[in-house]
Write a protein that binds this DNA or RNA. Sequence first.
DNA 1: ATCCTCCCCTAC
DNA 2: TAAGGTAGGGGAGGAT
Length: 789
Amino acid sequence: MRSSSSSSVSRRPLKRSKSNQKAPVRKSPFTDFESYMKDKNRKLRSQFEAEASSSSLGNSESSPVVSGRGIFHGVSIFVNGHTIPSGQELKGYMLRHGGRFENYFSSQRVTHIICSNLPDSKMRNLKAFSRGLPVVKPEWVVDSVASNLLLSSAPYQIFGHSSETCKQQKLSAFFGCKSISCFKENDASDSNVRIDCEGSEKSMNSPLEPQSKLLRNFMGSDRVFPIRLDEEQKLTNSLDKVNKYEASDADSLKLSIRTIAPSDDGSFGKPTYLKHTANSDVHHSTLNDPNFVENYFKSSRLHFIGTWRNRYQKRFSNMLKGVGYGKEFVHSSSITKGSTIIHIDMDCFFVSVILRKYPDLLNEPVAVCHSDNSRGTAEISSANYPAREYGIRAGMFVRDAKACCHNLVLFPYDFEAYEEVADQFYSILHKHCNKVQAVSCDEAFLDITEYDDINPESFSSLIRKEIAETTKCTASAGIAGNMLMARLATKSAKPNGQCFIPPEKVDGFLEELPITSLPGIGHSIGEKLKAKELHTCGQLRMVSKVALHKDFGERVGDMLWNYCRGFDDRKVEVLKEAKSIGAEVNWGVRFQDIMDCEHFLIQLSKEVSSRLKECGVLARTVNLKIKRRRKGAKEPEKYMGCGDCDNMSRSITLPVPTDDVALIQRIVKQIFASFHINVREVRGVGLQMSRLERMELNRRVHQHNVLESWFLLHSKIEDEPVRVCNATDGAENVPRLQRSLSPNENSCIEKANSLTAVRTARCSTDESARSALPPVSQLDMSIIKIFQP
DNA sequence: ATCCTCCCCTAC
DNA sequence: TAAGGTAGGGGAGGAT
Ligand SMILES: Nc1ccn([C@H]2C[C@H](O)[C@@H](COP(=O)(O)OP(=O)(O)OP(=O)(O)O)O2)c(=O)n1
Ligand SMILES: [Mg+2]
Ligand SMILES: [Mg+2]
């Protein structure tokens, strides 16, 4: 029985040593994902390149007879963004006619960049990264194929080697083209665009030019070799500010939403460039924005989804007032035939919301992210199903996503719209069902066990229909006997479908299902199972519960054992009150001096304090977490990211709960000081409050009194207790005096009752960091200072 | 046993 | 440019 505890004892140090040897401190999950993706992209590229080179070999190198060569011999194109015809078609043309097609932009290999017209802002961006290569309209390829001749690219050139005049002329040519083609604004349907563009192509050539200048520039050769910029120019170009997508007109959507894929030669990711970034970091780091926390959160998708539940709780509080879903009463039907649970989830939520405005793109690969630039370290938030066929997933870097699919269409966020749709979504759910458990802004469980007379599938269908009509976004649903199976059913039904798994189908459904598809099984547990040659739920069923307990602990072991059999006894429940409230920022955090840092800590304290107040709760425990650049870690690959860090955290438990900014600030400042770290190394800061207590009406007065008592006490430390706890309505809720360190270590502030500030500290896994912590006695004395105004 | 803290893990 | 947040579950191990 206690074998589990003995095994865990032996595993603990093992875990440490493992993380110590492979990387001194555990890596952030996204760090793993980065390298995973990098590897994947490398493979992808070599595969594509093999394909391209074998084709061109067959057509050219192996048959040196000129006539035998394809017309595109020596030409290697890179397609930037969406084109008509598509990148795939262009690739086909190139390969069939002796040319090459590059999946990645490289000025070494590419001779021509193919793209449709871009708005001026994107044009500048593209120009900066084209390395002087000619940027040519796709019609050049098409027309060359049609005439079976490599036409001069000059008339098709948007720019390249270029002078401003060239670019301007081309741009005006483009606008002329658009007015000629006269398709209705916002109409981005492929057929229309294709027809219009092709039809207008001939007329385009003439307005195109006073061709003399172009011809002078480009007539010499169709094969335009890259012009190498010197390092300084590169730097300048890369620092070029580029307008965001939002700035562009809606009617130039298809053109504006794409920009060039990043170079794969790494020249822009090099620390050389990043090092003298005194002014590159400046704009979006804590260095120059005194209101960084607030601004950052305004734009953070993870902040949006992380804080959504609070907003939901507020907005739907009347629906959630009930003390829960009366689990005391077990409905008769759940006894006879078990529960019926529906899980419902919006399809590629963020993408669906934006595509309401652009229905023509529904079948194209689309993703949502912050604007897209050469570095490509913005993250994909959501990808639609066509995009997923290319392997694109939420959380990927944009550049990796584009490496999977260079025709990927990117849209910016629209948080207000998500909020609106989520409201509509939940209004509908609550209207149809009185047992709704919110999972996230786009996902919920319904318990319809007691709706005996309703067919679950019709019911689900009805709700989905109403959601689709109201929100213009589709949702998928899963129906089953418990939450687990309902959720798995949803996954299998996506997109825009529903799936019912009756009890007798459960075993079959799970037999071949990868264990990692089970909710709650992520990367870490998945890897452990993989190491044991366990991949499917069917295989997992062969493992005894005892063994699972031994390896994963009691609860996780049970979960594995139950889930792989399709067992799940969780109940659909209302959202309960939060147990902790916090805020953290691990992006853009760069401090020059302690003033920067303290200013930031104050901002964060304000944020947390106001969240506590908003929730009407007070907290007793303050925990500060710092990410510190790991020794030897380079500037992170992700722009303004935290990179490879050691975590340090330290918590203090107050004698009384608080939401007071000034108090929180003082505590935070003290804790931070106790870390004794160089503020320039700080890459992330988190502040979370726990041991929450509901704020009652006279609570604040009470709190004040307690603090005053505390101050009094403080002057005569070992004195007899002031029974403050007795005075509190929640005295019995005050947990027992906690001391996580040896008694004498914090005795200096110890009281006879619970009025004790307790401090605990930890620096995860890193030995040197741990030793950097000050002696406990020192910190404890500092706690006293906290209470001195 | 039970509770507590300090994490890690997971999901959106 | 870019915005790597938030909160709950739960394991380990110590205190009571
Ligand atoms: N790593 C992630 C995961 C999700 N989200 C956001 C974007 C998603 O649209 C939304 C909902 O998450 P889902 O897991 O439900 O994903 P989608 O709705 O996008 O796709 P699916 O059709 O699989 O539900 O949360 C995000 O920003 N980053
Ligand atoms: Mg979804
Ligand atoms: Mg979801």
